[in-house]
Amino acid sequence: MIFLFRQPFLHFLLIGILLFALQHYQGLAKTYQLASLDEGATQLLVDDFFSMTARMPAPSDMKKLVAKELDKRILFAEGLRLNFHRDDSVILQRLLRNAIFLGFEGSDKEKIRAAFELGIHESDEVIRARIVQRMASVGRSHATGTPTDAELMDLYQADLSAWQEPARYTFEHLFFSVDREQEPVERAALAFEQLQADSSPQGLGDIFLPGTQFSAKSLRDVASIFGVSFSEYFNSKEFLLKVWQGPIASVFGQHIVRVTAIDPVQQQDFNAVRRELAQRWQEEQENAAFEAYLAQLRGRYRVTTDGELQ
């Protein structure tokens, strides 16, 4: 045995194995490295945040934005490692379109190959989003099992308000448009005085295309027709049943309203919403599976700055 360890060929063999192992490790380490966000990428996050919120992000906001962007980059990098960009018909069609736009010549396969060689798939935002989407599906697919009755009941009891039928209102209204010469508030106030003396609304108000009478409408329904400010009237302290009230503003003008009936909030039975509960349970399991998968990937990838691990 000692004689074997003294043989030069064995020394070369061991050195070769060690060099191969080191090279393999360095290759893996490079595969799982991500560059940190540069100044331009960070500024894009700031700009997007400002365009959506009309304010500059606070330090806590920036921390979340950067973390979310790094998560996307991790998912994208892993998707590339799994070759999602080479077997996805949507991505291949996108690359072909880009290649045609850039004037590449040859067959479709040659155009796509040329696009890959130029790294177009790494900078195209549509392709990046597609790969991130597929990676999210992979993570969610790790969820298994079916809910028990006890789990569904716990979900039902945890948020009873989510399983309520909203209150519904039956009402009529008179409409006074902003498109007329006279101020709608003045015209509505005058009509309201007439209604106090004579309860008949006939001949009063302007034409309102969606109608003048509405039956069993939820506040969401009302808001979709008249706007949120109008729907808030039904929750106000001044609200009275079967009495003309107003003027009440909407996105279209002014209204005088009379609510004639209210169907109160109804709690839906557990069995009536069982299917929706099972769907919510499944979504929660899939979200948890995705978060666990993403956490696993975060532990595998390392962020670098100028080649140095952070």
Rank of each mutant, 00 (worst) to 15 (best):
G203L: 02
S161R: 14
R94E: 15
G227D: 06
Q43G: 04
L204F: 06
A29F: 10
L4R: 07
I225R: 01
R73K: 02
K64R: 01
F208S: 04
F5K: 06
Q268F: 09
D159E: 14
D48L: 02
H11M: 03
Q285Y: 03
H142T: 04
R97D: 12
Y32M: 09
L82I: 03
E238M: 03
L14E: 01
A143P: 15
F192T: 03
D206G: 03
I256M: 09
L195V: 12
E181V: 08
L4G: 05
V66S: 13
D269E: 05
K237S: 13
Q133A: 10
V251M: 07
F234A: 12
D179N: 13
A143W: 09
V90C: 04
L75D: 00
L37P: 15
R55K: 01
D179K: 06
I127A: 07
N235I: 07
D124M: 01
Q285E: 13
K242D: 15
Q266F: 13
M62C: 01
S218N: 03
A143Q: 12
V178G: 11
G307E: 04
I17Q: 11
R140F: 07
L34S: 15
R73E: 12
I2C: 10
M153H: 02
L294I: 11
L28M: 10
Q213C: 01
G119H: 13
S199D: 15
L10H: 02
T31L: 12
Y32I: 13
K109H: 10
G211P: 02
T42L: 13
H11C: 07
T144H: 13
L195R: 06
G299M: 02
A162E: 01
E284Q: 14
L219P: 10
A162C: 00
E125G: 00
Q296M: 08
F20K: 00
L160C: 06
L44F: 11
E308Q: 03
D88T: 10
Q7G: 09
S199P: 10
E193F: 10
L10S: 06
R274E: 08
R128M: 05
F214G: 14
F290W: 10
A288R: 09
D179L: 09
L277E: 04
S141Q: 02
S141N: 09
L102I: 08
R128W: 02
V138G: 09
L45D: 05
V90A: 12
T148H: 07
R187H: 04
T170K: 05
D71W: 04
V185S: 11
P184S: 02
A150C: 00
S218I: 05
Q245S: 10
L44M: 09
L82D: 01
R275W: 11
V257A: 06
E117C: 04
A289E: 07
A189I: 05
W244I: 01
Q43M: 15
A99R: 06
L102P: 01
L4S: 11
D47S: 11
L82Y: 02
F84Q: 08
S141A: 15
Q133I: 00
